[in-house]
């Protein structure tokens, strides 16, 4: 027998479509960005966030009512929404902006998510209790959105989570988070925002039947203006450039040569 929860929880998982992590990116000749005509997929940390939401439902069947994913992105962001639905999320929201628009900054994304959360509570009567996001997107490497969202909502936050335990009443969560030099344990009151570390879980692959089923799950399409949001960046990107190239090194044949190179560079036993 599972204990009856005080109220069924609604989880929101924001996800981003990024260049696939394995792609070696190339800066464009105009130095305005990178070549995006390459394989894209769901940001790896967001896959972990989706997986965690699903595992929480598997673990606390009675406590979780819905898992909704949201992506704010150009038309093709709908692909990652379908991937998340195929993994096991129930429904999606796509806040779509044109391909030609610049990438929004974390602050604008956090404001958009806040507007969605307020809308879920007011218009859908499905207040969000837990937001699980990736700790960073592997394209801009900013690592800010979750914290900004928590701040704007006035909710508690647990960043870089490696373990999440919801309590039976669905009122709080114990979260182990990765910190410099080790880890710490936090106890947060719901509603709260959690950002995922790589170590939280191993995301599942969607099976073919689930991919088919995902096609029938509802995805709501919104525009930023529907939510009263302006996604225009506040920071100006001046240029995107290639990092300095390292000079090609030399291979040595023997340990003796390696030691000689080290000593030549001034490295010896401390």
């Amino acid at each position: 027998m599972h204990p009856t929860s005080a109220r069924l929880l609604n989880i929101l998982v924001p996800i981003k479509r990024t260049i696939d992590y394995a792609v070696k990116i190339r800066v464009n000749p105009q130095n305005t960005g990178v070549d995006t005509n390459v394989k894209h997929s769901m940001n790896p940390f967001d896959e972990i966030a989706v997986e965690e939401a699903i595992r929480q439902r598997e673990r606390n069947k009675d406590a979780i009512k819905s898992i909704k994913v949201v992506s704010i992105g150009p038309p093709k962001a709908s692909e990652v929404i379908r991937s998340a639905l195929a993994m096991g999320a129930d429904s999606g929201i796509h806040v779509e902006y044109p391909d030609s628009a610049p990438s929004p900054e974390p602050l604008a994304i956090a404001k958009t998510l806040k507007a969605i959360i307020e809308r879920e509570a007011k218009e859908k009567n499905a207040p969000i209790d837990l937001v699980i996001l990736g700790k960073q997107a592997i394209d801009d490497d900013a690592g800010q959105t979750g914290q900004m969202l928590a701040g704007l909502l006035g909710w508690g936050q647990a960043t870089y989570a490696s373990k999440v335990e919801l309590d039976a009443s669905g009122k709080s969560a114990n979260v182990t988070t990765e910190i410099d030099g080790g880890s710490q344990q936090l106890k947060g009151q719901l509603p709260m925002v959690i950002t995922t570390d790589l170590r939280l879980n191993e995301p599942r692959y969607a099976s073919l039947p689930n991919i088919m089923k995902a096609k029938k799950k509802p995805v709501e399409k919104l525009s930023p203006s529907d939510l009263g949001i302006d996604l225009t960046p506040l920071l100006e990107t001046i240029r995107i450039s290639e990092p300095a190239k390292r000079q090609a090194g030399a291979k040595v044949e023997t340990v003796e040569e390696l030691v000689a190179k080290l000593k030549e560079a001034g490295f010896k036993a401390a």
Partner: peptide, 13 residues
């Protein structure tokens, strides 16, 4: 950005 494979120059006005 992109795991150090590109360098962004950004201006905060």
């Amino acid at each position: 950005i992109y795991a150090g494979n590109a360098i962004a120059t950004v201006k905060a006005p």
